[in-house]
Amino acid sequence: MTSPDSINLEHLNHDRFKSWSFSQNICTTCGICSSSCPVSGVEGFDPRKLVRMVRLGFQEQLVETRWPWICTMCGKCAYVCPMKIDIANIVRGIRSLRDRDQVPGILHKGIDAALKTGNNLALPKEDYLFILEDVAEEIAAEPGFEGFKAPVDKEGANILTTIHNKLVNTHTEDLKHWWKIFHVAKEDWTLVSENWEGTNWGYFTGDDTAMKTFIGRIVEHMEQLNISSLMCPE
């Protein structure tokens, strides 16, 4: 982050974020947010300053800095704010203004993959189904779970459940906990064979369009399979 001395006052534009409804203009600069934030001080990050910069319209600096990406949008700042300023959503709003190819890490790559293939890993359907069957067979080999199967695309099931991509990647063991609970509870549940991704990285990057697409896919599954309950612990 550039030091305050180098901020060009020509960037000052009070109207720039006028349309944002996060109460940023009523900040009293008390600094309680900064005191509550575990990442205050890292690279000079300070939620109070960030809110002030939004108030003053310093868009360029806000979009360029790493600040909105080291903040986890945990909302503790907003929770303690006496003016109820929605600081976490301000941060998400700033994230949304970055060019998508400048979004750090694998976040936007995952979104791109999910838009094209239905999951963040671009995992082909046959590989995905193979992993599900493989894990189901391992469960079936345990006492009390004989004949266990993981249902897929079951119409009229009571519960539809999505999958966190890491569970069909590096953490397949962690698929078993919920599946075992469903089995013992004699639940009527199902997975889906396509568009099964449970995480929504559009939420993280401020990409509302992608976020809505991913949520829309889940709603579509529920309508098509005639299922009224969703279990999505992602």
Partner: peptide, 29 residues
């Protein structure tokens, strides 16, 4: 509860390259 500290890995930050910042963030947790 409401005053709980964040783990330091939320909001997609686990998927960014900012590992040192994440470790520092977690110190209170």
């Amino acid at each position: 509860e409401g005053h709980q500290y964040c783990c330091g890995g939320g909001g997609g930050t686990l998927l960014t390259p900012y590992r040192d910042e994440r470790i520092h963030y977690a110190r209170r947790k």
